[in-house]
Measured scan of single mutants.
Amino acid sequence: MDGTRTSLDIEEYSDTEVQKNQVLTLEEWQDKWVNGKTAFHQEQGHQLLKKHLDTFLKGKSGLRVFFPLCGKAVEMKWFADRGHSVVGVEISELGIQEFFTEQNLSYSEEPITEIPGTKVFKSSSGNISLYCCSIFDLPRTNIGKFDMIWDRGALVAINPGDRKCYADTMFSLLGKKFQYLLCVLSYDPTKHPGPPFYVPHAEIERLFGKICNIRCLEKVDAFEERHKSWGIDCLFEKLYLLTEK
């Protein structure tokens, strides 16, 4: 054995408090879109979701699917093309516009009456609605409950000090017999300040354990050449399924 860690023996890093005071403002996230600093976007979609999607959907149609901090995630069109209703929230209007443009979807925009100064973008087909606002303002819009949440790049982007508020927001959107698919990253948080932030299993239990059954479905090596600039040499991604207790 050469000592290389595999996707099945990932350790939890003990120094989980080192990132707790890290803060990125909404304006800084918007600047990332304006300046093209969106390496977190996956042009081909998320491979773990693609692998498990049909198993999760079980042939159902007409589900309501929520994408927190959606950006221009191509997976939104995957669900819409399968007959589901997609709702996303994203602070960057540019990111939302790029989604519709890159997916060749016509759309309209209208003000969100409950949140002055914000807009919702709706596909002409009517099954994709993307709200351009802070996720913490979203419950004011009465958008209803969801059958499924796809959380990739959301919890790991939320400032650590806001995670409890974020989890409570997610709980307010969950319908009966929900499936909450959650991706988190595992790396040494003493070497990279984030975002994306390190979210250990214990944190998921703390945030969601009282209401959800929590199961880790898969762990994969997600390290890429660009991650060397973070000062790390190891990065794993974990896919969790959260269901109603």
Rank of each mutant, 00 (worst) to 15 (best):
M1E: 14
D2N: 14
T4M: 14
T4C: 08
R5I: 11
R5V: 14
T6D: 10
T6V: 13
L8W: 07
L8P: 08
D9N: 08
D9G: 12
I10K: 14
I10W: 09
E11H: 12
E12D: 12
Y13G: 09
Y13E: 11
Y13Q: 07
Y13R: 07
S14N: 15
S14T: 07
S14C: 15
S14A: 08
S14P: 00
D15M: 13
D15L: 12
V18T: 10
Q19R: 02
K20L: 13
N21W: 11
Q22S: 15
V23D: 04
L24A: 11
T25C: 05
L26Y: 07
L26F: 10
E27G: 10
E27R: 09
E28N: 04
E28P: 03
W29M: 03
W29H: 09
W29Q: 07
Q30R: 07
D31G: 09
D31I: 15
D31P: 02
D31W: 05
K32A: 13
K32H: 12
W33R: 04
W33C: 08
V34C: 05
V34I: 15
V34N: 04
N35Q: 13
N35D: 10
N35A: 14
K37A: 12
K37G: 13
T38L: 11
A39S: 12
F40M: 12
H41W: 13
Q42D: 12
Q42E: 15
E43T: 03
E43Y: 07
G45L: 14
G45K: 10
G45Y: 08
G45D: 03
G45R: 05
H46S: 15
Q47G: 09
Q47E: 11
L48R: 05
L48V: 11
L49Y: 06
L49G: 03
K51W: 07
H52I: 12
L53C: 06
L53G: 07
D54E: 04
D54W: 07
T55C: 09
T55F: 08
F56C: 09
F56R: 10
F56A: 01
L57T: 05
G59V: 08
G59H: 04
S61K: 05
S61I: 10
S61T: 14
L63N: 06
L63S: 09
L63A: 11
R64W: 01
R64P: 01
R64A: 02
V65I: 09
F66P: 00
F66G: 01
F66A: 02
F66R: 00
F66I: 08
P68D: 01
L69Y: 05
L69N: 09
L69I: 06
C70N: 02
C70A: 03
G71V: 04
K72N: 02
K72R: 06
K72L: 02
A73Q: 11
V74M: 06
V74L: 05
M76T: 02
W78M: 06
W78V: 11
W78C: 09
A80K: 02
D81G: 04
D81F: 01
R82H: 12
R82E: 10
G83E: 03
H84D: 03
H84G: 01
S85G: 03
V86G: 00
V87F: 11
V87M: 06
V89P: 01
E90N: 08
E90S: 06
I91K: 09
I91S: 08
I91Y: 14
I91D: 04
I91F: 04
S92F: 01
S92L: 02
S92E: 02
L94K: 15
L94V: 13
Q97M: 15
E98P: 01
E98R: 09
E98S: 09
F99M: 05
F99G: 00
F100E: 00
T101K: 15
N104E: 10
N104T: 03
N104R: 08
Y107E: 02
Y107R: 04
Y107W: 05
S108R: 12
E109R: 13
P111Y: 06
P111R: 13
P111V: 13
T113P: 12
E114R: 06
P116H: 11
P116L: 11
P116D: 12
T118Q: 02
T118R: 13
K119P: 01
K119M: 05
V120F: 10
F121K: 02
F121A: 03
K122T: 13
K122I: 10
K122Y: 08
G126E: 07
N127I: 04
N127R: 12
N127V: 08
I128W: 01
I128S: 01
S129P: 00
S129R: 09
L130V: 13
L130G: 00
L130A: 03
C133P: 00
C133R: 01
C133Y: 00
S134R: 06
S134M: 03
S134L: 01
F136Q: 04
F136K: 05
F136L: 09
P139Q: 14
P139H: 10
R140W: 08
R140Y: 13
R140I: 15
T141K: 11
I143T: 03
I143R: 02
I143V: 15
G144H: 07
K145M: 07
K145Q: 09
F146E: 00
D147V: 01
D147S: 02
M148V: 15
M148S: 03
I149K: 00
I149T: 05
W150D: 00
W150T: 00
W150P: 01
W150C: 15
D151M: 00
D151K: 00
R152W: 04
G153A: 06
G153V: 05
A154F: 01
A154C: 04
A154D: 00
L155K: 00
L155F: 07
L155I: 09
V156R: 03
V156A: 07
A157V: 06
A157I: 03
A157W: 06
A157C: 08
I158T: 12
N159L: 03
N159Q: 02
N159C: 11
P160S: 05
G161P: 14
D162C: 09
D162Q: 10
R163K: 05
R163H: 06
R163F: 01
R163A: 04
K164F: 07
C165N: 11
C165T: 15
Y166A: 00
Y166G: 01
A167Y: 04
A167Q: 05
D168W: 05
D168G: 13
D168P: 07
T169I: 07
T169W: 07
M170I: 07
M170Y: 00
F171K: 12
L173P: 01
L173S: 04
L174F: 11
L174G: 04
G175S: 06
G175P: 11
K176D: 15
K177I: 06
Q179K: 15
Y180A: 01
L181C: 12
L182G: 00
L182D: 00
L182C: 09
V184L: 13
L185W: 08
L185S: 12
S186A: 15
Y187Q: 02
Y187N: 15
D188P: 06
P189L: 04
P189H: 13
P189T: 11
T190C: 12
H192K: 04
P193A: 15
P195Q: 01
P196E: 01
P196L: 03
F197G: 03
Y198H: 03
V199F: 05
V199T: 06
H201P: 15
H201M: 12
A202V: 11
E203I: 14
R206W: 07
R206C: 04
L207R: 03
L207I: 09
F208P: 00
G209K: 08
K210D: 11
K210G: 06
K210N: 07
K210E: 04
I211W: 15
C212Y: 14
C212V: 10
N213E: 08
I214D: 00
I214A: 07
I214W: 06
C216M: 15
C216W: 08
E218M: 13
E218Q: 08
K219A: 10
K219L: 07
V220L: 05
D221F: 02
D221P: 10
A222H: 15
F223N: 12
E225L: 15
R226T: 05
H227D: 03
H227T: 15
H227C: 03
K228G: 09
K228S: 11
S229R: 14
W230L: 06
W230E: 06
G231E: 12
I232S: 06
I232H: 01
D233H: 15
C234G: 11
L235K: 05
L235W: 04
K238T: 07
K238V: 12
L239V: 10
L239P: 03
L241T: 15
L242W: 01
L242M: 06
L242Y: 02
E244R: 08
E244P: 13
K245R: 08
K245W: 08
K245Q: 09
